[in-house]
Structures are given as structure tokens and as C-alpha cells.
Amino acid sequence: MTRELINRFLIYLLIAVCTLWLIIPFTMAVLWSLVDPAEPWTADKLMPPVVSFYRWHNMWVNSSLKEALLNSYTLAPSAAILTLLLAIPTSFALGRISFPGREVAKVIALLPLVVPPFVTAIFFTSLLFSLGLHAWRFGAILFAHSVLFLPYAIRIMTVSFEQVRQDHIDAARDLSASTIARWRVAYLPALKPGILASLLIVFIQSIEEFAIAFIVGSPNFVTIPTLLFGSLGQDFVRPNAAVLSLILVVPNVILMLFLEKLLRSANPSMSSGKGMA
């Protein structure tokens, strides 16, 4: 029974730590984002004296927030789709064809994760300069994101392709299904969770990516992270930074919860796939 007591104590301790860890910082951010410029929130007051959505409105109208949101939310889905399209052929080869050097290829696919992002960013810009392509920032960032996040998509899709059951494909062929019908019937159901997971992960990564967007994009092309970085630096206005932080964090939480649910629901259907080819 002592274990139970210890567990209870640890849980209380953890809740206390988490209050410090999560709740206080976020509450502070929410409060700061609501401070009305009519009266500043000085150190001697427990709560902001005047509360309003002025800062939210102001940021929306008078800053590059709209532009950043537009940029980020065009960039991320484009990158997600492009990455998936680039990843599928490689994943098919890695997951369903056995060739010498396959394991080496799987390791090489992880390369972008090992090279520090700022090194990639700076020398990618250097490459763009020498090719004369540095003006086309959106395309450059999109391309860089797609390649940099390929490891995630390749990894997930390779596993998905491995999960496709040979007997399903054989059964489809046996029932004289065409190539397209075969893909729809045997491949797609097994690949679907992987496709969704890849799209979501690349989407989230791209929304959050800072190094490439900062180095390649600055100063004219803003995304939410670079805008936030800017507002934390030279032109630091606490309430504005609070607004931006909250805007950046909320979609992530929702998407990640969705991803978690997706991965959990995908698991049982996969574990039933015994007798794999």
C-alpha cells in the first residue's frame, strides 16, 4: 500500500509543479494580452486595471499579423502536400521492395534531422543567391520545408506501406481488379492513417519552423514564428507578444490532440494485420 501513498504524493507534487510549469505562464500570457493601453498594468496591481480586447484588435489591424497568418497558413498545407507527394515513391520502395542497401537508405533519409537548421538555412540561402533565386521567397521556403520534413513523412509512410497486407493485394488481383482498383482496395485503407499523420506532422512542423523562414524570408516575408521573434526582440511590447504567442499555440494544441486521436484509432486496425507478407 506504500506504493499507492507514494503515487498519490507524487501526483500532488506533479500537479503543483505543473501549475508552475503550465498554468501560471499561460494565465499571465492571457492576462497580458487583455491589458488595455488606457491604463498600464503596473507592478503594484494584482490584476490588469482595465481589461479589453483592444490589443487583439490592434494587432489584427495594425501589424503584419494578417500577412503572417496568410503566409504561414498557405505555406504549411502546401508543404504538407508537397512533402507527402515526394515521400510516397521513396516510401513505397523502402516499404515494399527489398533491395540491397535498404537499411542504409532508411538512415540516409534521416539526414535533414541531423544537420543543424541554421546551417541548412544559411547555406541554402547562399545557394539561392548564387542561383539568383533569392527573390522568390515563398517558393524557396516551401521547397526547403518540403525537403527538411521529408524524413517524418518517409518514416511514417514506409511503416504504412509495410502494413499493407500482401494477401489483400493478392486477393484483389485474384478477383481480377485493375491496378487502380487494387490500390483503392488494398493499399488505401492501410495507408490512410499514415497519410493523415504525415500531413498533420509536416503541417505543424512547417507552421513552427523558424530558422529557414527567418534566414530566407527576412525581412519581407513574415511567418508567425518570425513575427513573434521580432516582437520579442527590438520592438518588444509585452501585450502584443502575448497576443502572438497565444495565436501561435492554440492551433497546435488542437491539431496535436487530433493527431493523438488519429494515431490511437489507427493502431488496433494495424495490429490485427497478422500473417503479413
Partner: peptide, 30 residues
């Protein structure tokens, strides 16, 4: 078969190797 594998690997693995390889190469050469 080899040709097929290489063609399949080109858009994914090929791009990774090309981009990261170029970046590292440029860094070293520069």
C-alpha cells in the same frame, strides 16, 4: 528492378541527398 528502385527513390531520398549534400558542400567550400 534497380532502375525502378532508383526512380522511386529519386523524388524523396534523392532530393534529401541533393539538398543536404549541396548545403554541406557549399558550407565546406565557402
Amino acid at each position: 528492378r534497380w532502375l525502378q528502385v532508383i526512380l522511386l527513390l529519386t523524388p524523396g531520398l534523392g532530393l534529401i541527398v541533393a539538398l543536404i549534400g549541396t548545403v554541406v558542400y557549399i558550407a565546406i567550400v565557402q
